[in-house]
């Protein structure tokens, strides 16, 4: 079972920002769940993922944080102060940024992650071959990562993180700018990931989340407006129309 994620009284403010992104924020994501963090732009979704991955403290050194973040059995006070990869993997919103730009094939692009982890050549080759097959990327293995469609590039970016087998997988608006086919493929991939990995992803519309997630959190103005199961979310969805586009769902 993947690790649970608990944020307790979390406060986070970027240096020189007039107000904090989070103030006494709380969230509880059970281990092994596929949790969707929903909310309008500026709700704090990306910042939350950056905090959980360790990127926030590592890259915004002047930010002010308070509270407690617990991932599995490890408690970080106030937040993870270094990037927690490979235990925690974050897939950024723009897959083209996640592609390193220094590798010329999809295969070696994915392998780059394992090189960083110091794995041997044989182990790397076996792991990459497995992930290529699992993510339906085998036929693209020798293509340049930048010569792919948006959906394919998104799969490569995701594969380059999943290949490290993180316990907690974070995805920032993974379905953003994907066509329906690519979105369905991505939803299938996320559903195929075993509960040994907890998945947390963000989105500003509920459609993709309803196809993929079993746990829902709704953020508004940096506070949790809703936290619950899929059924509970569907029941309450009509009351969120001011925050989420619910047309055609409710």
């Amino acid at each position: 079972m993947g690790p649970s994620v608990v944020a307790t009284d979390l406060t986070f403010r970027y240096f020189a920002a007039s107000r904090p992104v989070f103030s006494a924020f709380r969230v509880n994501i059970p281990g092994g769940s596929r949790c969707a963090i929903l909310g309008p732009a500026g709700a704090g979704k990306t910042t939350l993922l950056e905090i959980l991955s360790g990127a926030a403290a590592s890259h915004y050194k002047t930010a002010i944080a308070d509270g407690r973040v617990t991932i599995g059995d490890k408690t970080h006070i106030p937040i993870p102060h270094e990037v927690l990869f490979p235990r925690v993997g974050l897939v950024l919103q723009d897959p083209s940024v996640q592609i390193s730009g220094i590798r010329h094939t999809v295969r070696s692009e994915i392998e780059f992650t394992l090189e960083n982890l110091g794995m041997g050549k044989d182990v790397r080759a076996a792991k990459v071959a497995r992930i290529l097959e699992r993510f339906s990327l085998t036929h693209l293995a020798d293509r340049h990562p930048y010569r792919l469609s948006g959906g394919e590039m998104q799969r490569v970016a995701l594969a380059s993180i999943v290949v490290a087998e993180p316990d907690l997988l974070l995805l920032d608006e993974p379905a953003n700018a994907l066509d329906e086919r690519s979105r369905n493929e991505l939803a299938g991939i996320l559903r195929s990931i075993s509960p040994a990995t907890t998945i947390v992803f963000t989105d500003y519309t509920p459609e993709f989340a309803l196809e993929t997630a079993d746990r829902f959190v709704l953020l508004d103005n940096s506070t949790t407006r809703f936290e619950g199961t899929r059924d509970e979310f569907l029941t309450a969805l009509s009351t969120f129309s001011a925050l989420l586009p619910t047309e055609g769902i409710v």
């Binding site: 996640q98 390193s100 590798r103």
Partner: peptide, 21 residues
């Protein structure tokens, strides 16, 4: 800045020896 973050998020550390095809 984003690219630097992305590399760190993929386990790249300053000093890691790279391999090239």
């Amino acid at each position: 800045i984003e690219r630097g973050t992305a590399l760190t998020l993929r386990g790249y550390r300053a000093g890691t020896r790279l391999e090239f095809e």
